Amino acid sequence: MKGILLVNLGSPDSPSPKDVKKYLGEFLMDERVIDIPLVARTALVKGIILNTRPKQSAAAYKKIWWKEGSPLIVISERLKKSIQKQVEVPVALAMRYGSMTIKKGLQELVDKGVDEVLLFPLYPQFAMATTETITVLAEEIRQESFPNLKIESVPAFYNKPDYIEVLSHSISESLKDKPYDHLLFSYHGVPERHIRKSDVTKSHCKIDGSCCETPSKAHKFCYRHQCLEVTRLVSERLGLKKGSFSTSFQSRLGFDPWLLPYTDRTIERLGKEGVKNMAIVTPAFVSDCLETLEEIAMEGQEIFHEMGGNNFHTIPCLNDDKPFVNLLSNWINAWSKQSVIV
């Protein structure tokens, strides 16, 4: 029997500093998030970050926390319920970090008689710190606890025409009657070394301004290429004029080089250059979360207004919008009936 396990990032159980510290500890100790030797990672995370950041992050979570709970969790649960109504196979939901573990999600499916799982990371683009850490952990759990379970994973779907169509439609609908001079595509940032580590050719990814546009096998696992490709495909689909849109990366951590340009500095620059009406979309996320609701919608807007901007419009993620639910349900039904992975 087949089943689906949707997996998103995760969230603290509450916006309290204690729960946020526990969540950040698990998240930042992941070797695919902070990919430095264990001793150094432990010293950095447990010796420095967890002694300073939880209170700050808890305050940010409190700003965006819903009555029903964490926005990311609530939205993901709504998405799962909506999909379940359109597919015949069991659907479970798990998070990479936090109390809604992948092991619990797999156990829920196994208890329903499932012996073949389609692991569905809810990330359009591949990255070490998102898709890879989910698939690696799922395989470890399978070997330890569910040796007879078969698991297949949905690959990155950033360039699938039907996904681009749904994303473009969402942007277009959100911008109806909204004045904007510039549309910024903001993606979650990653360290530059993650791009090079994911390069299967070991030589193509130089992050030099041209490698992402030069055809290569490396693009299958190149987060930067996949982000730029989403921007290109959506801008073409929407008929955006050159100069009216751009790409940036948010949420950097530490002092190592991360993907450029940075979102906060891009917002600042656009404001200084005289852009008065700005829209921003975050296609690395399918569910609104701390990074979209607080970092972009609140902090980004504040920066823009400080630089003289007027209107700052944040485009919601796809969340549980009907076209997105239909898209994922169609993919799942194709797999359940014909074993066709996206």
Rank of each mutant, 00 (worst) to 15 (best):
V7D: 02
P12W: 07
S14I: 03
S16T: 09
V20A: 04
K22R: 15
Y23M: 02
E26F: 02
E31S: 05
V33I: 09
I34V: 05
I34D: 02
P37V: 06
V39L: 10
A43D: 01
L50F: 01
P54G: 09
S57W: 02
S57P: 00
A60V: 02
A60I: 02
Y61C: 10
I64W: 05
G69W: 09
P71W: 13
S76F: 15
S76W: 15
L79P: 05
L79F: 11
K80H: 06
K81D: 15
K81L: 15
K81H: 14
K85T: 12
K85S: 12
V89C: 06
A92K: 13
L93W: 04
Y97E: 03
G98E: 04
S99F: 05
M100Q: 11
G105C: 08
D111M: 13
D115C: 03
L118G: 04
L122R: 03
F126L: 03
T130C: 12
I134A: 15
T135E: 14
V136E: 14
L137A: 13
L137D: 11
A138M: 11
E139D: 15
E139R: 15
E144I: 01
P147F: 10
K150G: 00
S153N: 06
P155N: 00
P155H: 00
F157S: 02
Y158G: 01
N159Q: 07
K160W: 05
P161I: 03
V166N: 01
S168E: 08
I171L: 12
I171D: 05
S172T: 02
E173V: 09
E173N: 14
D177R: 09
K178M: 12
K178C: 07
H182G: 02
L183W: 14
L183Y: 06
S186A: 10
Y187S: 07
E192L: 05
I195S: 12
K197Q: 10
K197R: 11
D199M: 01
V200K: 01
S203Y: 10
K206N: 04
E213R: 13
P215C: 11
S216D: 09
A218N: 02
A218W: 01
K220F: 01
H225P: 05
Q226L: 12
V230T: 13
R237W: 09
L238K: 11
L240H: 10
S244A: 15
S246R: 08
T247G: 08
T247V: 13
L253M: 15
P257Y: 15
L259P: 09
L259E: 06
R265K: 12
I267Q: 01
V275Q: 08
M278R: 05
T282E: 03
P283C: 13
A284M: 11
A284Q: 06
F285S: 13
V286C: 11
S287V: 13
D288V: 08
E291S: 04
T292G: 01
T292H: 00
E294T: 07
I296A: 08
Q301F: 03
H305P: 00
N310V: 14
N311A: 08
I315M: 10
C317G: 12
D320C: 06
D321N: 04
N326M: 01
L328Y: 04
W331S: 02
S336W: 05
S336C: 08
Q338H: 14
Q338A: 13
V340G: 01
I341Y: 05
